[in-house]
Design a protein around this nucleic acid. Structure first.
Lengths: 263, 263
DNA sequence: AGCGTTCCGCTCATAATCGATCACCATCCA
DNA sequence: TGGATGGTGATCGATTATGAGCGGAACGCT
């Protein structure tokens, strides 16, 4: 096991149990106690934990570890959804807005292949990935960063978005329900996402099938406010019908496992 | 298998697992480890991943990796400067502003050790590193991203900064000249940096000695506009005297090479 | 407080990995 | 055909990570 994996494992364990022991870690990670101590020292220097005799305890509130650790779920579906969104965005679109999330990150990766595009986003991870692309004109919202979602939210973000217009917004959400509309886990995030929808002429929602029918805490907009919903084939026909009655076109994407070779 | 395909495979694997190992990749792709390293190097240059000893992790990592991977010129000096800036920022400061640059990135890494702090920045790389810290309240400017410096600049950034006040701004610059003031290579960047200085009650400029006496394209502010300049010991006494005559205190930091072993 | 045990930090030797360089081979184009 | 170009694998000195050993500090028990 390599060092960076160990650091992740230690943090994860700390997150679950609140404390860890040097001996236990050494056994679980198959390394010497000396190495465990080195790792703990490394993490302590960054305030990610507090050393104790014989181990370490979590320092402060350690939130759910972001993106990097939950990339795997529904991966193929998200990628297929992203590829389809790429076809929905007109070739002559000049600006696209993206909020945060693993699916929208995949959309960003798909859009990057276009010869030229202006991308507006409030997601830090997307911004970092796109910043080096010469063919992408990247605009980032201001705002406060949420460590859970890597999104920039709050009044500053909304103020930025109020001065911007995009051709298409691609919106990742946590829940899609005919009755409750599009929802997310966090209220401030919902506000910012709503600002993004307002800035867009047309909105495409991306949501893998696990989100369909679910309602989470904060409402972003009604189902009728968007033009398209893209999801994967695990969705039920009844859900599709219920959503389409409210206005948007629902695109169901079939995952073709074989078709790899997409960066 | 062609190189293009390998790059795709590596990125794909990185997305799913968060990290990859050189040996594993070499075996899976049926190429030598030398080629894998070349591929990883290629991808690292595009900021698509971060190299580690024995492999690579997805970029935008959660925590600071062992220091060898943060090479670059004058690295020791930058690190020493950052440590000194940490002592200059009062312990009870509630908010610190940072612009982009390698030195300010080091400052951010030093400040992260404080129990609680609000950090305002227009640098994407700094934002990515700080986003997960529970003890840091991170505020990011809006704006257009410059791929060269990873900074968010332009009217949107300035508008954001106009609504913000910070106790201390730590400003990285490209040139420090008694006659020309603090300068940077890019005009729009200079404007945004000026906005950051305006938002701050007090400004500390960080500049390793290679920048002292140099003047680059666009002026940010006069020497007199800042309270402190932190640089390393390669600076000449004459330069220090000339700068101090204009107002700011010049702190000369001595790099203690021996004092290595900082994890 | 005294004492034994455990744990820590430090140093050193070893093993693994890295970056640079070189020769080799396939492909492309004149 | 023949040179140029670019990718590949191997080699070598240098760097980094690891595990073990040792003196000293912290902890728990009496």
């Amino acid at each position: 096991m390599r060092q960076e994996d160990r650091l992740g494992q230690i943090l994860r364990k700390l997150n679950e149990h609140g404390s860890v022991g040097v001996g236990v870690l050494a056994a679980e990670l198959n390394v010497s106690e000396a190495s465990v101590r080195r790792d703990l020292h490394l993490l302590e220097e960054q305030q990610l934990l507090t050393r104790t005799h014989g181990g370490a305890v979590a320092s402060g509130v350690l939130y759910e570890l972001p993106m990097r650790y939950r990339g795997g779920q529904h991966f193929e579906a998200k990628r297929a959804i992203a590829a389809h969104v790429d076809t929905l965005v007109p070739a002559d679109a000049t600006s696209v807005g993206l909020n945060g999330g693993t699916t929208t990150t995949e959309v960003a990766r798909a859009l990057v292949r276009r010869p030229h595009l202006r991308i507006v986003t409030n997601a830090l991870n997307i911004a970092s990935e796109l910043a080096v692309r010469a063919n992408i004109e990247l605009v980032v919202c201001g705002g406060s960063a949420r460590s859970e979602s890597y999104e920039l939210v709050g009044p500053l973000a909304e103020q930025t978005l109020a001065n911007i217009n995009v051709d298409v917004a691609v919106l990742g959400v946590d829940g899609v329900s005919p009755a409750a509309g599009f929802t997310t886990h966090h209220e401030v995030e919902a506000n910012t996402n709503r600002a993004l929808v307002r800035a867009a002429e047309r909105t495409i929602v991306v949501a893998d099938s696990s989100k369909i029918g679910r309602r989470t805490f904060a409402k972003i907009v009604d189902i009728a406010a968007v033009s398209d919903i893209v999801t994967d084939a695990q969705v039920t026909d009844a859900d599709v019908a219920a959503l389409e009655r409210l206005g948007p076109v629902v695109h169901v994407v079939y995952t073709s496992i074989t078709n790899a070779h997409v960066y």
